[in-house]
Design a protein around this nucleic acid. Structure first.
Length: 861
RNA sequence: GCCCCCGUGGCGGAAUUGGUAGACGCGUCCGACUCAAAAUCGGAUGUCGAAAGGCUUGCCGGUUCGAGUCCGGCCGGGGGUACCA
């Protein structure tokens, strides 16, 4: 593509036969900027729509995944504007987090400087895409203004009893001296240091997400514009289970040992199948036993040493330590069950203790076999009552056996019966247990929101007075040694206690960055200086009509945001409980991978096609084509958006992102694809040129080809409008091609001129620069971004003739064009009169004749 | 292991939700324009067959007048998740 010398800076270089993005893109972007075209007006009387894409982490450069994500949202935002909505389409930066600290350590730059430089670079890149964003609302979560408001919200949660401080087991990296998230532990080792991760008990701040577990699960049903997949993942994550919580009496407890042991089960129906009880290694009872038993201590230490990696857990053998204690069976006081400390019992689910029913639980069975415990069957299908349990526990349906008063009951009835009896006799209670755990938000990091708490020896944990917010991170820190910089800093943490005025210290942990992203959408909607948000203004935009992002956030971010919004509603700060009405999870951008003969990854630019083979550009050496994978630096299959924008322009990049692949699926980047998209942008320009000399007359009444084109145009309006509503951009693209094809083939007419104008408006959200350029070239007033969206005439959507498919025995034999809405009898007559049908039926009357009006006739001879 | 999703031409993918499979794009081939190239334009393109016609939506079965679409069972690919009692 050669940038031909332009005749000048005129917006509508009408005689140009080519559209030149290098010259036009920036010009239109500047114009939108100057006119504040996409500024969101909170006081607008128009219907309000907030379109949001998950805001980026400022890693330094945007990648194609960003381009795809933001293009999709942009199409929707622009279409809604044209459809008469007041639209809020904001952009900001999820700017706290570890990469900035890593960069600081590696390059000796301050995380803030690094982050802000990245933001500047990425903002410039995003602006080149021509996104319809209200940049006046931009912020970064590392702005003290933003995190100061976040600290205020934290204090509100604290006051409302939704914040807790307690001991918790964490993954501790002894080299980096920090807590690691579960995702950062790979095969039991810290992902950066490679050091074996220790389990350590630390005092941590928690947000009480479990207070809303039931609501968070139940209200998933109301999110009918979310992908089923995401709702299901959240449901599984919350993990609601109905069951029985009950108390075992400890048989003759030695001194110091509690007299009872609480357990939880979802299978109270199998209680007569119990053959042991077990507690987690972290259970208080285990600690009590260990206090008097070196062997128990050794066992617990041994279990703790086992890694937490999935692979290790999967292969880990069931192990137990017999405490020598026993408990009394609650339904049969004559029975005793031995109590073990077992490695497969989890402290943080249920009560941290179980009863073991080997016949009907696989883990219990593995354990029982190892320790030669009995395996009594208590559930069986008819006829299988005597079938012994082998190596597989039976977890299916059936009737209860060997269980006294439960015998003969179905599983569900037996559960209810045991729960009722436990409640009546006072040793247990039906209850609901969640897998979801409270959200530990303490991070031993510098680059995050300081937790606004001051620890005073006399007064305990004291909230920072709101007047003293924000608690600002100190800038003067160095990164030569790992560890908690806020703790090491000579002065920062030392402050007087707000209550008693005595010397005290600040909390030196910072908040998990997921807290930052749990309310940013509210701040986008409303950003007063003196408080986190204005309720009325926020509610005027929220919930987000359409949220778009990667499925990798299906649980964490989306669940935390739902919780945070709900917590704000609980405190009376906002009137919505669900932040995102519509959710869309888009696919990744992938690319072929290339490997040299030596097995090294090659960049796409270093490879060219030679005949059917691939060779290295530099050496001509053969290249192996690898798998198609997500673009990643390690595989070198990355295509840089800037280079694409330089060469093809924003519209081609946007069009390609929307073409071909359904948005929820992966999109394979290819040279052919971007070139095809660039070709379409030029074609669109030529289509617009066709409309330059408008004919006169009434397009609706033009006979023949003109009328057909008008009908097609209105079908395109209808189709593309629906496609964009459903985010099915690939279909909208296909329809735009169809209309372009038809316009190019049509003879000059009013209908053709009209069709071209309509097409421009329909594709304007997708390829806004060429659309503006063509709009101006055609002498249309104002910006196409402000033009009203075309409206389909319903009368033109239906044809007066339809093509019937004529089947014999379900096989297509003939087609026939008949007037639309023809009565059934006439359709039958017309079809039976067809020579081909006469031939096939030999004139005999059919046994059966199915007529689908205006569509198809099936003859069963 | 459990849960979910997906298998349609050489490729990406359409298919009004049970009604003419393969829209649209890419690629390929033929042709036009050109001194030539690029760009552009016209045509062909699931498969077998000269044609008539047959076959065809991962495989096997079922329901139905009719199945890419619904049901059952396999095979293959992808994702999520896990000692959750």
């Amino acid at each position: 593509m050669t940038a031909e010398a332009d005749t000048g800076a005129s917006a509508a270089a009408g005689t140009e036969s080519r559209f030149d993005p290098a010259q036009a893109d920036g010009r239109w972007q500047a114009r939108w900027d100057a006119e504040q075209t996409f500024r969101a007006d909170s006081s607008s009387p128009k219907p309000k729509t907030m379109v949001l894409e998950m805001f980026p982490y400022p890693s330094g450069r945007i990648h194609m995944g960003h381009v795809r994500n933001y293009t999709m949202g942009d199409v929707l935002a622009r279409a809604r504007r044209m459809q008469g909505h007041a639209v809020l389409h904001p952009m900001g930066w999820d700017a706290f987090g570890m990469p900035a600290e890593n960069a600081a350590m590696e390059r000796k730059v301050h995380p803030g400087d690094w982050t802000r430089a990245n933001i500047a670079a990425m903002r410039a890149q995003l602006k080149r895409l021509g996104l319809a964003i209200d940049w006046s609302r931009e912020f970064a979560t590392c702005d003290p203004e933003y995190y100061g408001h976040e600290q205020a919200l934290f204090l509100d949660l604290f006051e409302a009893g939704l914040v807790d401080r307690r001991d918790a087991w964490v993954n501790w990296d002894p080299v980096d001296n920090t807590v690691l998230a579960n995702e950062q532990v790979i095969d039991g080792r810290g992902w950066r240091s490679g050091a074996p991760v220790e389990r350590r008990k630390l005092t941590q701040w928690f947000l009480k997400i479990t207070a809303f577990a039931d609501e968070l699960a139940a209200d998933l049903a109301s999110l009918d514009q979310w992908p089923d997949k995401v709702r299901l993942m959240q449901e599984n994550w919350i993990g609601k289970s109905r069951g029985l919580r009950f108390t075992f009496a400890v048989d003759a407890p030695p001194s110091g040992v509690p007299a009872s042991l609480d357990v939880f089960t979802t299978r109270p129906d199998t209680l007569f199948g119990a053959s042991f009880a077990a507690v987690a290694i972290d259970h208080p009872l285990a600690a009590t036993v260990a206090a008097g038993s070196p062997q128990a201590q050794a066992f617990i230490a041994d279990c703790r040493a086992t890694g937490t990696a999935a692979s290790e857990i999967e292969t880990a053998e069931k192990k137990g330590f017999d405490t020598g204690l026993s408990v009394v069976h609650p339904l049969d006081a004559s029975r005793r069950l031995p109590v073990f400390i077992a490695n497969f019992v989890l402290m943080d689910y249920g009560t941290g203790a179980i009863f073991g029913c080997p016949a009907h639980d696989q883990r219990d069975l593995d354990f029982a076999r190892k320790y030669m415990l009995p395996v009594p069957r208590v559930v069986a299908l008819p006829g299988e009552e005597q079938t012994p349990i082998g190596d597989e526990a039976y977890t299916g349906p059936g009737r209860i056996i060997n269980s006294q008063f439960l015998d003969g009951l179905e599983v569900e009835a037996a559960k209810a019966e045991v729960i009722a009896r436990a409640e009546a006799q006072g040793w247990g209670q039906g209850t609901t247990v969640f897998r979801l755990r409270d959200w530990g938000v303490s991070r031993q990091r510098y680059w995050g929101t300081p937790i606004p708490i001051i620890h005073c020896e006399a007064c305990g944990a004291v909230p920072v007075p709101k007047a003293d917010l924000p608690v600002v991170l100190p800038e003067d820190v160095t990164f030569d040694k790992p560890g908690k910089l806020l703790d090491i800093h000579p002065t920062w943490k030392h402050v007087p206690c707000p209550k008693c005025g005595k010397p005290a210290v600040r909390e030196t942990d910072t908040l998990d960055t997921f807290v930052d992203s749990s309310w940013y959408f509210i701040r986008f909607a409303s950003q007063p200086a003196d408080r986190p948000f204005d309720r009325a203004e926020a509610e005027s935009w929220l919930p987000v009509a359409q949220y778009i992002g990667g499925v990798e956030h299906a649980i964490l971010h989306l669940l935390y945001s739902r919780f945070f919004t709900r917590a704000l509603a609980h405190m009376g700060q906002i009137g919505i409980t669900e932040p995102f009405k519509g959710l869309f999870t888009q696919g990744m951008v992938t690319h072929e991978t290339y490997r040299s003969a030596a097995g090294e990854w090659l960049e796409p630019g270093a490879v060219r096609k030679q005949g059917d083979a691939l060779v290295e550009v530099a050496t001509g050496a053969p290249v192996d084509l690898g798998r198609i994978e997500k673009m990643s630096k390690s595989k070198k299959n990355v295509v840089d958006p800037d280079a694409i924008l330089d060469r093809y322009g924003a519209d081609a990049a946007r069009w390609f992102m929307l073409s071909d692949s359904p948005p929820e699926r992966d999109l394979q980047w290819s040279l052919a694809g971007i070139e095809g998209a660039a070709r379409f942008v030029q074609r669109l320009w030529r289509v617009a040129l066709l409309a330059k000399d408008p004919a006169t007359g009434d397009p609706g009444s033009e006979p023949g080809a003109g009328e057909a084109l008008t009908r097609l145009t209105h079908k395109a309006i209808d189709g593309i409008t629906n496609d964009i509503d459903k985010l099915q951009f690939n279909k909208a693209v296909a329809r735009a091609y169809e209309l372009s094809n038809a316009i190019e083939k049509a003879a000059p007419s009013v209908a053709r001129t009209e069709a071209a104008h309509t097409l421009l408006r329909l594709v304007a959200p997708m390829v806004p620069h060429v659309a503006e350029e063509a709009w101006a070239m055609l002498g249309q007033p104002g910006l196409i971004a402000d033009a009203p969206w075309p409206v389909a005439d319903p009368a033109l959507l239906v044809d007066d003739e339809v093509t019937y498919a004529v089947q014999v025995n379900g096989k297509l034999r003939e087609t026939v064009v008949l007037p639309k809405g023809l009565p059934r009898a006439e359709v039958e007559a017309a079809v039976m009169a067809l020579p081909r049908i006469q031939e096939l039926t030999a004139g005999a009357p059919p046994k059966k004749l199915i007529v689908v009006p205006d569509r198809l006739v099936n003859i069963v001879p």
